[in-house]
Amino acid sequence: MGEKENLVSRRSFLAWLSAGAFSLMSGFAAFIGLGFLYPVKRQKPPALFVCLESEVPLVGEALEIRDLKGRKVFLMRKADGELITIGTVCSHLGCTVFYRPKKKRFECPCHDGVFDGEGNPVSGPPSRPLERYPTEVREGKVFVHFA
């Protein structure tokens, strides 16, 4: 009596259940599989010791150091004594900027972009500042987090 009232037979219900489970699992596998198309994200590298705090020059001058890719990076002291690390890749189209200590500014040779001593755009086409790397001083040693 009870079996006659059921709209779905036990056999077809099991078939639907297994098809549903198969779809769910294959969808899950495809979701993970698609992730393999993209490169694995590297873990954030630890902060790098670059120099002693006493080696950082006075305000207005810059200490040239290298990032993990060997590119030029400038370590500078702000007027309030805070240390900042500024990248030299122009935020406009990727050329390398020069630091002009006399003018206390960065200049890009490609499209005439100019940044102030803290890497903020002043004139020319760049609209974003130069990249800044988090810098910290621990027991008189300077560490930079290169992302």
Partner: peptide
């Protein structure tokens, strides 16, 4: 890859586009 020369220009046929990139921000 570490140093962009101070005076760099593309080939002559790209000069107008090079100029445009200097004049228009971002």
């Amino acid at each position: 890859p570490l140093i962009t020369p101070e005076h760099i220009k593309p080939e002559w046929y790209f000069y107008p586009f090079f100029r445009l990139l200097k004049l228009v921000p971002g």
